[in-house]
Write a protein that binds this DNA or RNA. Sequence first.
RNA 1: GCCGGGAUGGCGGAAUUGGUAGACGCAGCGGACUCAAAAUCCGCCGCCGCGAGGUGUGGGGGUUCGAGUCCCCCUCCCGGCACCA
Length: 871
Amino acid sequence: MQQQYPFRDIEQSTQQQWETSEAFRVQPDPGKPKYYCLSMFPYPSGKLHMGHVRNYTIGDVLSRYHRMKGFNVLQPMGWDAFGLPAENAAIQNKVPPAKWTYDNITYMKKQLKSLGFAIDWNRELATCQPEYYKWNQWLFLRMLEKGIAYKKTQVVNWDPVDQTVLANEQVIDGRGWRTGAPVEKREIPGYYLNITGYAQQLLDDLDKLPGWPERVKTMQANWIGKSVGVRFAFTHDIRDNGQLIDDGKLWVFTTRADTIMGVTFCAVAAEHPLATLAAKSNPGLAAFIDKCKQGSVMEADIATMEKEGMDTGLTVTHPLTGEQVPVWVGNYVLMTYGEGAVMAVPAHDERDFAFAQKYKLPIKQSITVDGESFSLAAWQEWYGDKTRGTCTNSGKYDGLGYEAAVDAIAADLKAKNLGDKQINWRLRDWGVSRQRYWGCPIPIIHCDTCGDVPVPDEQLPVKLPEDCVPDGSGNPLNRRDDFINCSCPKCGKPAKRETDTMDTFVDSSWYYARYASGFKNDAMVDAETNHWMPVDQYIGGIEHAILHLLYSRFWSKVMRDMGLIDYDEPFNNLLTQGMVLNHIFSRRTNKGGIEYFAPEEVELVHDEHGKVTGAKLLADGLPVDFQGMGTMSKSKRNGVDPQSLIDQYGADTARFFMMFAAPPEQTLEWSDSGVEGSHRFLKRVWAYGHALSGETASDLPAKLAGNPANARREIHATLKQANYDLDRQQFNTVASATMKMLNALEKLQKDAESHWQGIAREGFSILLRLLSPIAPHITQTLWRELGFGDDILAAAWPQPEESALVQDEIELVIQVNGKLRGSMTVARTLDKPAIEQLAVAQTCVQKYLEDGGSVRKIVVVPNKLVNIVIG
RNA sequence: GCCGGGAUGGCGGAAUUGGUAGACGCAGCGGACUCAAAAUCCGCCGCCGCGAGGUGUGGGGGUUCGAGUCCCCCUCCCGGCACCA
């Protein structure tokens, strides 16, 4: 056994062992509970980044821990292989996306293996493989049959120079990212999935997910955005060229129908037909509408923006009072939500109140609360309170509370055929068509005679040609006659294939079910899926809190309704890991721009206490600005390549540091010296193992006392805490527990009588097992070298021995009036009165009694402290 | 603006139910070894104070024998969002 810690050799040889013994290949085992541990699969962008290392180390620690606890663990891995970056790389390097992607997969797979993850590589998949995406197409066709998938026109970002559709992230300040040309909005046909049909289930079933972070569930609920209210119409006789607009009805949606008698105006969106009509004869209004359309719609920072509006001069008729109500255009009304028009009740809506005051519109109270008085002077909280208010100035509805009033008013509107209760959702249907090459082809054939014809199942998959090289000017599939030209499955005449591909969120919506399946080529999933699913632990970035997770939940429910699977929710427990941050250093350039420096080009300047006071560039010795910590990124030049970390310190060090530096859900701040500290620790572990291997083994003595007993107690107490921490997924304190154990072992006195070797071997075997999920290579090697066994993965997870935790004498802290004043050592068996008596007699307590105070009360917390209240 | 999460030494972070605040590590300081350096090992390390002691978990109040932890108010930071009728 080598004295130096030979991390390269042992990591390579351990990985080789795992590979030849197929250590992580897994099949269903009726004798063991299953544990499906899944990390979000990576996009094969070229090489791993630190976020991947963190994500997959968390998953691997959980997998190995559960395996040693007796679970049959499935931990698969694959590739989210379709997507835009491959096309961008093709434009730059003139390499087909397929080749680029497969090359990247090869490299990244090597990297993942070098990190020693316990992955069942037999289940590897890439979403760009026809065997996989065939089933995207197959399920899409089933959805089409059931009406879940349908076609309508969609608005896209169009680059007029490249003649191509742009993704949102390719639009920078309203211009194409490559051409700089102003982006146009174009309407083109595309396919949609009716996710809104599942909105209620997606909302309700969040309650079935106690293992999800509360904030993710809140984000999903907000995104789904259920809103219960009343949809009703104001009537009018407004005509454009004699043609009645919208059949003479201005539809609005409201959650506060109980305030309907307080309506004093209506507000419509800039795109609303009534606004368009009024603008024709009113240049001022037309200008205002143009301004509204330009305003960014979805930014949160315009929440505080000035509410503006303009009168259209048009009026509509209130459905219950028959009064004429003016119609305004408001910059705060969105065409895309509800009806694009709202009723305004300034007395009971804070926003309408401000608007009415600004434009001197009437305000009419229609709700009252006992003990409060209404005043136009200022908005009061109770004006909008639907829990306390009752109707007033509302004729027959006076005195009714919120629910009763809404019911009565909705019924009256319904009787007039002018409205009814309605549920509105913020969630929109999922548009899946992408005018992109590198994606799963949508299996549709366009025939001049028969229209849009689904590709028959037996012709699936519609294979994507893998030799195209996009050049930025539109989808290259449009120029591939061998792909496009086909015959109509219905009439046999020449026809054209659809060239749109699917959103890549489709690919990632069911990969977890495919991993768990037997990879049959005659079925999307087989019965094995139901054995492993649902996923017991899903781990990934918070950035997928809404879309990916919502789409996956939706896709699962569709698969369930088609009888393919038997679970409602795919992911039982979700862990959202924090991002990896690093220092950002920069300097203003002469030209006024900002130049960034990599952390290794910079040296920190400390004061005499070690406090960082500044930073300077190594190259010129002059100061640079420290901009704080930020996500690792190319543009800020603060990324750290995991490969260099692995090369220099080894996988175990990388893994240990990732676990040690922060709890999994928090952001992790990169620190070179922290990495060195982790490496130092593993070197000490190795050195201790090396020293112990030279000692003759001895048994644990029957009765321990003094220093050896303390060392053993420290080990077992630390283990107890570490097991608790593992189950609450706080791995940073598990890592520190292994450090504490080593500290205790190194302190253990090596005297002849104490049989210290027995304690050391027991303690070190506990340390190795506790450390093994985090640093599997070094622990496996030492486990075998020290003769504990062949395979640490087969070892039982260590449990603390209660007898080791018992102390004959305990230290009790003494407080006077809650303040720490001293301590005393007493026998564990000492009873309460004796403890009280002993405590009061201590000099540190007597001191406070001398000034004439007397003992008022004594609080004894067993095994912890005594608090003497003196007054 | 609304919703969610935070604030603990020079830094990252500990502290199951209210019970010795600062575990573990990093940085810093001192020492040993060395011709020297690196590596390694030992010691110190919240702040004020020579010391006794005082003080201290963003700020203010409260409950309690006792509060980082519970309650009320405030400030700041981070994340999410939908001007959602």
